[in-house]
């Protein structure tokens, strides 16, 4: 076992978000793929877990912005990016059936 295994996956105040770590994805492509393959229930659970913590998350990230983030901070930041990615589905479309659009991955040509 590496010693890193002792490190928490997320910053301590946000450890309760650990069940959603599969949303901590580095690339826009991965976040889109996660959004389009997750069930609507999974998307809502993630959104509902993140939204009440957003102010706290923003305050926390402020202190480490523009620096090399330690992995737990980085994961928290990536969770925030996924929250932004899914927000229109939860808040505006509300259901996938409302979406009349091309496959989002078609936009990632470059």
């Amino acid at each position: 076992m590496e010693s890193a295994s002792a490190e928490p996956a997320l910053p301590l105040p946000f450890e309760d978000l650990a069940p959603f770590l599969d949303w901590a994805l580095e690339t826009e492509r991965a976040r889109i793929e996660k959004k389009v393959t997750a069930s609507m229930g999974e998307v809502r659970s993630f959104y509902d877990a993140m939204m009440p913590r957003l102010k706290e998350i923003l305050d926390y990230l402020e202190s480490c912005f523009d620096q090399e983030m330690p992995p737990p901070d980085r994961r928290l930041f990536l969770l925030s990016l996924s929250l932004v990615e899914v927000s229109s589905l939860v808040e505006l479309y509300r259901q996938r059936e409302s979406i009349e659009a091309c496959d989002p991955l078609r936009f990632l040509q470059f």
């Binding site: 990615e85 927000s87 979406i99 659009a101 078609r106 936009f107």
Partner: peptide, 16 residues
């Protein structure tokens, strides 16, 4: 990022 995602969502509708 928010603005970017909303823009992309909107333009995906346009492409369709």
């Amino acid at each position: 990022e928010y603005y970017k995602c909303i823009t992309r969502d909107t333009l995906q509708e346009d492409t369709a």
